[in-house]
Simulated scan of single mutants.
Amino acid sequence: MRRMRRPERREQILDAATTAFARSGGFTATSLDDIAAEAGVTRMILYRHFASKTELYQAVIDRAAERLHAAATARGGLSEETVPAMMDWAAAEPDAFRLLFHHAVREPEFRGDIDQLRAGMARTLRPHLAAEADSEAWADWAAGLATTVAIEAIMAWLDAGQPDLEKARRRVLRAIDGVYQALTVH
């Protein structure tokens, strides 16, 4: 068996850490021994790549956020394809999605990162809603609510066992359209 190169080993550790953190319930509930066992390596190998559990968790969160962003923008920026692309990514990497929006948000040390991620999502959506809003405050409200609806709808779909992806896409988009409809009530 050939020895893994450093970048390959790092990715293997990040994959294993994502799984271990999601399965155990986040940062606090997961030990380095849990991660090492999941990766099939020793703690010494973990420390060759990451100085601490905190650094490893941060790397897992950063990678998940980057992958979510890449998926959401891969089909040409914000469009009707954005949410289906997010769902495709969540289906492929449910542990990473759960870490971002279920576990990390509950960890005081990492919550700010997730709050910034959500705020960035809402900022991206806001200009598309502003034209229909009565005021800037209502545009902010709709962008924040639509972001929350998308995240929570995808999380609920994952928790339900990922039934019928195509139908789920339509239903999540319809839920988000409900925010748009609420915004346009005068």
Results as ranks from 00 to 15, higher is better:
Asp62Lys: 12
Asp62Cys: 14
Asp62Met: 10
Glu66Thr: 13
Glu66Ser: 14
Arg67Thr: 13
Arg67Gly: 15
Arg67Pro: 12
Leu68Pro: 10
Leu68Asp: 15
His69Glu: 15
His69Met: 14
Ala72Cys: 10
Ala72Leu: 11
Thr73Lys: 07
Thr73Leu: 13
Thr73Arg: 08
Ala74Tyr: 08
Arg75Leu: 13
Gly76Pro: 14
Leu78Thr: 07
Glu80Arg: 04
Glu80Lys: 03
Glu81Leu: 12
Thr82Ser: 15
Thr82Glu: 15
Val83His: 05
Val83Thr: 09
Pro84Ser: 01
Pro84Val: 01
Pro84Asn: 01
Pro84His: 01
Ala85Arg: 04
Met86Tyr: 10
Asp88Trp: 03
Trp89His: 06
Ala90Leu: 02
Ala91Gly: 07
Glu93His: 05
Glu93Ala: 06
Pro94Phe: 07
Asp95Met: 04
Asp95Glu: 12
Ala96Asp: 11
Phe97Trp: 15
Phe97Pro: 08
Leu99Ile: 07
Leu99Gln: 02
Leu100Asp: 05
Phe101Cys: 00
Phe101Gln: 00
Phe101Met: 00
Phe101Asn: 00
Phe101Asp: 00
Phe101Leu: 00
His102Phe: 09
His103Tyr: 12
Ala104Tyr: 10
Ala104Pro: 13
Ala104Gln: 02
Val105Asp: 06
Val105Pro: 07
Glu107Ile: 01
Glu109Phe: 10
Glu109Trp: 12
Phe110Asn: 01
Phe110Glu: 01
Phe110Ala: 00
Arg111Cys: 05
Arg111Met: 09
Arg111Trp: 07
Gly112His: 02
Asp113Tyr: 15
Ile114Val: 10
Asp115Arg: 02
Gln116Asp: 15
Leu117Thr: 03
Arg118Asp: 09
Ala119Gln: 11
Gly120Ala: 02
Met121Leu: 14
Ala122His: 06
Thr124Trp: 10
Thr124Tyr: 11
Thr124Asp: 13
Thr124Pro: 07
Leu125Arg: 01
Leu125Asp: 03
Arg126Val: 02
His128Lys: 14
Ala130Val: 02
Ala130Met: 04
Ala130Arg: 07
Ala131Ile: 03
Glu132Val: 05
Glu132Trp: 11
Asp134Glu: 15
Ser135Ala: 13
Ser135Pro: 15
Glu136Ile: 03
Glu136Pro: 08
Trp138Cys: 15
Ala139Thr: 01
Ala139Leu: 04
Asp140Met: 03
Asp140Cys: 08
Asp140Thr: 08
Asp140Ala: 04
Trp141His: 15
Ala142Pro: 12
Ala143Asn: 06
Gly144Trp: 01
Leu145Cys: 05
Leu145Lys: 00
Leu145Ser: 05
Leu145Ala: 06
Ala146Gln: 13
Ala146Phe: 09
Thr147Phe: 02
Thr147Gly: 01
Thr148Ala: 10
Ala150Met: 12
Ala150Ser: 11
Ile151Ser: 06
Ile151His: 08
Glu152Arg: 05
Ile154Cys: 04
Ile154Tyr: 07
Ile154Trp: 07
Asp159Thr: 07
Ala160Cys: 07
Gln162Ile: 05
Gln162Asn: 11
Pro163Ser: 02
Asp164Phe: 06
Asp164Ile: 03
Glu166Leu: 10
Lys167Asp: 15
Lys167Glu: 14
Arg169Asn: 11
Arg169Pro: 11
Arg171Thr: 06
Arg171Leu: 07
Arg171Ser: 06
Val172Phe: 00
Val172Pro: 00
Val172Ile: 01
Leu173Thr: 03
Leu173Pro: 02
Arg174Val: 06
Arg174His: 08
